[in-house]
Design a binder for these strands. Structure first.
Length: 300
DNA sequence: TTCCAGGGGTAGA
DNA sequence: TCTACCCATGGA
């Protein structure tokens, strides 16, 4: 096993809370190793597929590369940089949530918990992976999302050189290489299959620069418009993708949001979406994080 | 068997 | 902009 990589998060940081933040850790090719309290991920570098084991505490994140039958050999300096960049992106190590935590401190009470490092919601190394996964959360229960992502990874992900069972998240090219009908037959995505295939095709063809979008400084409404241009991405999915990009001003109004807000803030009575949204209006650009902290602290 | 999920596309107003 | 209606799939 190569020497572990060590990364320094911007405090406050809570590794376990970040890993468990919104279910993404349970979607292939990620997995939670409860015994080690580690995120395991089959990860595709530019040149090869490796296995990552990510652990962490308040001051440090460690990335180990568990060996499998001699793989991986030592990483090149460029590969070590790739790993660091990917993990830092996934855990949002550099993200500045000072403004959000200041508001939580002001609110006090149960919100004060968040100042200990809540708000870093786990994401994927690429917006392509996050966009596919987000489309696969729509109009389906969580178990269905997990199944669909797993099938996609098993069918189209590049295998680890020493273990065919370990597969990385598929590249846009790998998905686009299958014709749409064959793609639909190989993975049970239902009516979402054409959306995922078209997204992969556009990204592979260079028609859609998703990663550029993720790093752009466009105002949120423009960014939202661009995301809504992806077939399969509606209001909920766009809000989710904005969150994954690091924009928290738009709320993901879905069945979870509606039932939670009704239960927590309206005594269980269903209310119009506008009224439900208004609950988090005071949080301004931090609405999404406020909703998510409220939800995760009051799941019951 | 029926219902519906971490909704979205489309047509028609 | 808003409203019906349809959409594949599998778990509850």
């Amino acid at each position: 096993m190569s020497a572990p990589l060590r990364l320094r998060p911007t405090p406050p940081f809570d590794f376990a809370a970040t890993a468990a933040s919104h279910g993404w850790v349970a979607l292939a090719p990620n997995a939670w190793d409860a015994g080690r309290e580690a995120i395991e991920r089959v990860h595709r570098l530019t040149s090869r597929v490796i296995l990552l084991r990510i652990t962490g505490g308040p001051d440090e994140v460690r990335v180990e590369l568990p060996g499998t039958d001699g793989h991986p050999g030592p990483l090149t300096p460029a590969e070590r940089r790739e790993v660091r960049d990917a993990v830092a992106h996934m855990l949002r190590l550099d993200e500045d949530l000072t403004g959000f935590h200041a508001l939580c401190r002001e609110q006090g009470g149960p919100w004060a918990v968040a100042t200990r490092g809540l708000g870093r919601l786990l994401r994927s190394p690429t917006l392509f992976e996050d966009a596919v996964k987000t489309i696969l959360t729509t109009n389906v229960q969580w178990g269905g999302t997990r199944r669909m992502v797993r099938e996609l990874v098993e069918a189209f992900g590049e295998p680890h050189p020493a273990d065919d069972e370990l597969r990385a998240f598929p590249t846009p090219e790998a998905i686009a290489a299958a014709d749409p009908e064959a793609f639909s037959e190989r993975v049970g995505l239902g009516y979402r299959a054409p959306y995922v295939h078209e997204l992969a095709r556009r990204v592979a063809a260079g028609e859609l620069d998703l990663e550029g979008l993720a790093g752009s400084d466009l105002p949120t409404p423009s960014l939202e418009r661009e995301l809504r241009g992806i077939r399969g991405v509606g209001p909920y999915a766009a809000a989710t993708l904005l969150m994954l990009i690091g924009r928290y001003d738009v709320l993901p109004v879905d069945s979870v949001f509606r039932s939670f807000v009704a239960r927590r803030h309206f005594g269980g009575e269903a209310v119009p979406d506008a009224e439900a949204r208004a609950v988090y209006e005071p949080w301004g650009r931090w609405r999404y994080l406020a909703y998510w902290v409220d939800l995760t602290q009051n799941m019951r």
